[in-house]
């Protein structure tokens, strides 16, 4: 065995599922054991999630190897390969780092939650505007569409909509989009630091993170039964 061989297997969550990013010049067997190691303690929390293999430029796995890894992940961890055959055959190469953000939040896994493909709510027509900061103890509810807050949602405040919630400010309280069960609803905030985020019937709590991260516009929505937060690049 070559002791200079290098294996890096990274797992990241994106809007369209997981990506397994392989960067290695090692043998197939070594990559396989690295994948197993990476997936070992995930339990069944990701069952049914789509996973896509991506490779760094310096490594070219054969389509057979890629297919072998897909079937391995499917059989042992319940991860589904991307649905188009084409994608299986020609694994995309990672040429530049993606600017999408990996999954944050605690993956909630409601049994039998339908997986919507349409990411945004159908209640697009109606919106309620809140033109001030929602402070502790203040609650806004709109069950006929979307809510747009021009201000912050502070800790202790709550905003609930049957459709999407758009916060042109800091989200630090609780936001509940799709409150009538629309799990295609989304929460958008200029600075996403909620106490709790609820979409449809899924409740998440974000991981605690370093203070004073540079704020950026982000969107949270459900994908494959998990709440995923990513850079917001428009509806």
């Amino acid at each position: 065995m070559n002791n200079e061989s290098y294996v890096s297997v990274e797992l990241k969550g994106y809007l369209d599922g997981l990506r397994l990013i392989i960067d290695s010049d090692a043998s197939i067997a070594e990559i396989e054991s690295a994948i197993k190691q990476r997936l070992a303690n995930l339990g069944d929390s990701l069952t049914g999630t789509t996973v896509r293999i991506e490779q760094q430029q310096n490594r070219s796995l054969s389509p057979e190897d890629v297919n072998y890894f897909y079937s391995l992940m499917q059989q042992e961890y319940g991860l589904a390969p991307p649905d188009s055959d084409e994608e299986v055959a020609s694994t995309p190469r990672l040429t530049s780092p993606s600017n999408e953000q990996p999954i944050r939040g605690i993956p909630a896994n409601p049994p039998n939650a339908p997986i919507y493909q349409e990411p945004f709510s159908e209640e697009k027509e109606k919106a309620e505007f809140i033109r001030h900061t929602l402070r502790s103890g203040q609650v806004e509810r709109f069950l006929e569409g979307n809510i747009i807050v021009i201000g912050d949602v502070n800790p202790g405040a709550e905003v609930t909509a049957s459709g999407d919630i758009i916060i042109l400010g800091n989200l630090r309280g609780i936001a509940h989009a799709g409150a009538l069960g629309n799990i295609a609803a989304a929460v958008v905030a200029m600075n996403m630091e909620p106490t709790q985020l609820r979409i449809g019937n899924i409740i998440t709590r974000p991981p605690s993170r370093k203070r004073r991260r540079k704020p950026m516009m982000e969107v949270a929505r459900i994908k494959q039964g998990n709440v995923i937060v990513e850079d917001f690049e428009g509806f």
Binding site: R135, G137, Q138
Partner: peptide, 12 residues
């Protein structure tokens, strides 16, 4: 701070 925030909302 949380209670101050509450009071500010009530004052407004």
């Amino acid at each position: 701070v949380r209670d101050a925030d509450r009071i500010i909302g009530l004052l407004q």
